[in-house]
C-alpha cells in the first residue's frame, strides 16, 4: 500500500498535467459539436470510404452524437493519446527505474518483489482511472448542453471498455519491459501489436481472411460491440479483464525470477 502512495506521489505533477490536458482536449472536441451537428454534408466525406476505412475511422456518420464521438474520440484519437500516457508509465515504472539505476535502492527495502510489482501496477491503474475520469466528466457535464443526450450507461460503457483496453496494453507493456529490464523492448513489442491489431480490426471488415484473426485484436474487444451504441459487452469486458489478469501474472513471474541489472 505504501508503495502505491509513493508511486502516486512521485508522479503526481505529470498526472495533473495529463489529466488537465485530456480534459481540455475532450472539452474542445465536445465544444465543436454544436457547430457541425446540422451539417449533414460532412457525412459524405466518410460515406465514400471503403467499409474497412470506415471501421478504422469509427464509422461514416459524423453528425449524430454517437457517430461524432466515435469518429472524433473513441475510434482512435483518444485511446491513442491515453495509450501514450499509460504505456510511458508502464515502461518507466520498473524497466525505466532499472535503466536509471534507481531500482536497487527501492527494492533493497523489505518489499517482496511480487508485491512491489503489483503495487506499481496498481498505482498506474489509479493514475489511468484519474485520466479516464477527465474524459467522462466533461462528456457527461455537457451531455445535454451540446445535445448529445446520450444515456449515461452507454457513455460509461465505452469509457470503461477503453479503460480496460488501455490498462490491458499497459499491463503487458510493464510485464515485457520488466522481463527484460529494458524500456525499449516492451514498448517496441506493444506499440507494434497496437498498430498491427488496429489494422487487423479495421481491415477485417472487408478482408474475410482477417476475420479469423480479429479475436486476437484487443481493439475488437474494446469497440467490437459498439459500446457507445449498445452499452456494456459482457464478453468484451471479460476478455479484457482476463487479459489484464494474465498480464499481471506473467509480469510477476517474469520479474520475480530475474537478476536485476546493476
Amino acid at each position: 500500500m505504501s508503495l502505491i502512495l509513493s508511486e502516486l506521489r512521485l508522479r503526481r505533477a505529470s498526472l495533473i498535467v495529463w489529466t488537465v490536458s485530456i480534459a481540455l482536449l475532450v472539452l474542445m472536441i465536445v465544444g465543436v459539436y454544436p457547430s457541425i451537428r446540422d451539417n449533414t454534408s460532412l457525412n459524405a466525406i466518410y460515406g465514400d470510404l471503403s467499409q474497412s476505412a470506415q471501421q478504422l475511422l469509427g464509422g461514416s456518420d459524423l453528425t449524430s452524437p454517437v457517430g461524432y464521438l466515435s469518429t472524433q474520440l473513441f475510434a482512435f484519437f483518444l485511446p491513442a493519446v491515453i495509450l501514450v500516457f499509460v504505456l510511458g508509465r508502464c515502461a518507466a515504472t520498473i524497466a525505466g527505474e532499472e535503466e536509471d539505476r534507481t531500482l536497487d535502492l527501492l527494492l533493497a527495502q523489505p518489499l517482496a518483489r511480487p508485491a512491489a510489482y503489483l503495487e506499481k501496477a496498481a498505482a498506474i491503474a489509479i493514475g489511468l482511472l484519474v485520466v479516464t475520469l477527465s474524459v467522462v466528466i466533461p462528456l457527461l457535464a455537457f451531455n445535454s448542453a451540446v445535445k448529445f443526450d446520450l444515456p449515461v450507461a452507454d457513455v460509461s460503457a465505452v469509457v470503461v471498455q477503453m479503460y480496460l483496453f488501455c490498462l490491458a496494453l499497459g499491463v503487458w507493456t510493464q510485464a515485457i519491459c520488466a522481463a527484460f529490464g529494458r524500456r525499449g523492448v516492451g514498448l517496441g513489442i506493444v506499440v507494434g501489436y497496437i498498430v498491427v491489431s488496429y489494422l487487423v480490426y479495421g481491415l477485417s471488415a472487408s478482408i474475410p481472411l482477417l476475420m479469423h484473426l480479429r479475436p486476437l485484436s484487443l481493439w475488437r474487444w474494446f469497440l467490437g460491440n459498439d459500446p457507445l451504441q449498445n452499452g456494456f459487452g459482457a464478453a468484451e469486458c471479460l476478455v479484457l479483464v482476463v487479459t489484464i489478469a494474465v498480464g499481471l501474472g506473467a509480469g510477476v513471474w517474469l520479474f520475480g525470477r530475474r537478476n536485476l541489472h546493476a
Binding site: R101, A108, L111
Partner: peptide
C-alpha cells in the same frame, strides 16, 4: 544498503528521497 553508485531522481529533495527509499 548504500549502493556504490547512488543514483536517485534528481528532482526530489533529500526528505523526499528518504521517504521514497525507506517508507517500507
Amino acid at each position: 544498503y548504500l549502493p556504490g553508485d547512488f543514483v536517485v531522481p534528481s528532482r526530489l529533495t533529500g526528505y523526499q528521497i528518504l521517504r521514497r527509499y525507506s517508507f517500507a
